[in-house]
Simulated scan of single mutants.
Amino acid sequence: MSKRIKSVLQYSLFIGLGVAMLYFAFRGQNIGEIASKLKSANFYWVAVAAVITMVSHLVRAVRWNMLIEPLGYRPKNINTFSAVLIGYVANFAFPRLGEVARCGTLTKTDNVPMDKLIGTVILERVVDLLSLVVILVLTVLFQFNRISSFVYDNLLKGILQKITANTLNLVVFAVIVIGLIVFGIKLFNKYKHTIYESAIGKKVMSLLEGIIHGLTSISKLSSVGGFLFYTVLLWTLYLLSTYFMFFALSSTSNLTLLTALFVLTVGSLGMAAPVQGGLGAFHWIVSKGLILYGIAELDGLAYATISHGTQTLMVIIFGGICFLWMVLNQSKKPKMSAIL
């Protein structure tokens, strides 16, 4: 199977998954009524939330620069900001492609080694994951009853039922997986010297060394306090964007900042799903979550749609502008090559 055909199949799979999740999210709902709610939305608050979101992207870019500088490179914030937005656009084309795309963009504009950048992005994602865990803990502490009900009814209940019904299959699957892992480890230990000495092995080891170098950048930060400040600021902006978007619809305008904290938490989980830009997954999990706060599922879908749609539109517009700016800027230099 050629790489092109494989890529097309993978892309089709993710698109199909996203469309399927959208279908399940909107199944049985009055689409016309949702459209009517969106038309009557207060777009002043949509604009406020959109501006805050764009500022959060800038903060992410500045924080990323703080991880890159210990490696001996000082990209301009405008270049890092452009790379972040281009990465988000790439995520709409193919999940997780954005991480590679933004590293490739900055490699092109500032000659920062790709492998080292990948290390900083992995590190950044680890920090984001830890931040999300902290937010999740805070959300649970403040709203334990609602969170426990949501998790059980929408996640654990179905999982437990499937585990109970397929215990034997799961045991067999676990045994097979463990067996393959053990076999793989033994096979690697037997031929590791040959692997290390091969051309591919040397390239892989070189790549891993660069990634590890990037991962260690956090230990060389010029200002740990500054990095923590930008991390807190980033998630505060995400929270405010979520909160102010409530005011765009009359049905959600009375929700509180604590509700926004919950929506930010579950929405982040939806955006992390392996589909383009959280398509469908974000809509489903946010609309289900808002039911706990007395918001009808249809109104929750309207909120999820305007929130996700605004973020998507802003990324496409400004990400496209950044891409064109980068191409035009690079065209002035000799030997221009592709980003990826």
Rank of each mutant, 00 (worst) to 15 (best):
V126E: 10
V126P: 06
D128R: 00
S131N: 05
V133N: 03
L138H: 05
T139A: 12
T139M: 10
L141N: 07
F142C: 13
Q143H: 09
F144K: 08
F144Q: 04
N145F: 00
I147N: 08
I147P: 05
S148H: 14
S148E: 14
V151E: 06
Y152V: 03
D153Y: 13
D153W: 09
G158D: 09
I159K: 04
I163V: 13
T164G: 15
A165V: 11
A165N: 13
N166S: 14
L168S: 13
N169S: 11
V171E: 06
V175M: 12
V175S: 14
I178C: 11
I181R: 08
K186F: 05
K190Y: 07
K192V: 00
K192P: 04
H193E: 15
H193S: 14
H193Y: 13
T194I: 07
Y196I: 14
E197L: 07
S198Q: 02
A199K: 11
G201N: 02
G201L: 00
G201R: 01
K202D: 03
K203Y: 00
V204M: 09
M205L: 11
M205N: 06
L207R: 01
L208E: 04
G210Y: 03
I212A: 12
I212T: 10
I212F: 15
I212G: 12
H213V: 11
H213N: 14
T216H: 08
T216Q: 14
S217M: 03
I218T: 04
S219W: 10
S219F: 11
L221A: 04
S223Q: 02
S223A: 03
V224Q: 07
V224H: 06
F229Q: 11
T231Y: 00
W235R: 02
L237D: 01
S241W: 00
T242N: 12
F244G: 02
F247Q: 08
F247R: 08
F247K: 09
F247T: 09
A248Q: 02
A248C: 04
A248I: 01
L249A: 05
S250V: 10
S251F: 01
S251T: 12
T252S: 07
S253G: 05
S253E: 05
